[in-house]
């Protein structure tokens, strides 16, 4: 049997710590990775890496580009763990540096590696948003959670409830309505919750920052009220049909018991199935089996 020893404590969500990548000399940013006191292990040749920082212009060697792609992949993987969209500016600042001019090419190669090696698809959150997220192309299966121990995020359940609520109420919901509903489940906006911590903060700040939810003030209301909608990440990671199925399962009913929502979800499914140009995706989604990144 697999032991259940995993951490139950989520990384503290208290406050918006400015998560600077670089933390002084002992923690160089990835863009300086090869230059520090650290010698990379592994059988890869290190010769070209020493001169990595030297040429600001001119052609870069394949080796240098390969290392940049590797740094970019690791940066994206680590940043994605926090579920906060990764900004183009941060990629340039912390990884690319002098390679800024090759942003599109390096990002495309990193996307190809992420897809092929890890099964993550790199997508731009919204067209021209210059923010990127990773979408898991592997469907989660229930036993993953068992294999993983308790490390799954318990907050996902709360998020699904809120997403379901929004969809069932016509895609927009007042914040007060959300709390009216959650109160019945023992989740109060102002009371610290054993699992969710500060529920108000989680829903109106954390999920918003992760772009699962949109949260905005409803104009001309007194007292002030806010409304919630699905954010762009939700549309990329899940679908109306999946959320409806979740709601139906919770109620022990069939998705078709809500005809209006069912039709809407079906329409969305059909629209997605239609082939369409996807200018928002920075990389071809096909997982090439070629291991080598194409040279520029």
């Amino acid at each position: 049997m697999l032991q259940k020893h995993k951490s139950r404590i989520r990384p503290s969500s208290q406050g918006e710590r400015d998560r600077e990548w670089s933390r002084g000399e002992e923690a160089p940013s990835t863009s300086r990775g090869a230059g520090g006191s650290q010698e990379p292990r592994g059988s890869a040749s290190q010769g070209s890496r020493r001169s990595e920082a030297a040429p600001a212009v001119g052609p870069r060697t394949q080796k240098q580009l390969e290392l940049k792609v590797a740094e970019l992949v690791q940066f994206l993987l680590i940043k994605d763990q926090r579920k906060i969209p990764i900004k183009r500016a941060d990629i340039v600042k912390h990884v690319l540096g002098d390679y800024k001019d090759m942003f599109a090419d390096l990002l495309r190669r990193a996307a190809e590696r992420l897809q092929y090696v890890f099964g993550y698809k790199l997508v731009e959150l919204e067209p021209k948003s210059h923010s990127f997220i990773l979408i898991n192309t592997l469907e989660p299966v229930e036993e993953d959670a068992e294999v993983r121990g308790d490390q799954g995020t318990p907050t996902t359940g709360l998020l699904m409830i809120v997403l379901g609520l929004i969809f069932m109420k016509g895609n927009t919901i007042k914040e007060t309505e959300v709390w009216d509903f959650l109160r019945r489940l023992g989740v109060y906006p102002t009371k610290k919750h054993l699992i969710f911590g500060d529920p108000k903060k989680l829903i109106t700040e954390e999920f918003v920052r992760q772009r699962y939810l949109e949260y905005r003030r409803i104009p001309h209301t007194d007292p002030v009220d806010y409304e919630l909608q699905w954010g762009p990440r939700t549309n990329l990671e899940t679908s109306k049909m999946k959320v409806l199925k979740f709601v139906a399962k919770v109620h022990n009913q069939d998705p078709k018991d809500w005809p209006a929502q069912y039709c809407e979800a079906l329409a969305e499914e059909e629209a997605r199935a239609r082939p369409q140009p996807q200018p928002s995706a920075p990389a071809p989604s096909s997982s090439s089996s070629s291991a080598a990144a194409t040279s520029s």
Partner: peptide, 24 residues
């Protein structure tokens, strides 16, 4: 294991500056 960058940078995304320094 990450061979290209310092391992502390892996922790850097999970911990604040003072926490990383405590680890150090």
């Amino acid at each position: 294991v990450n061979l290209a960058t310092t391992p502390v940078s892996k922790m850097a995304s999970d911990y604040a500056e003072n926490e990383l320094d405590l680890f150090r």
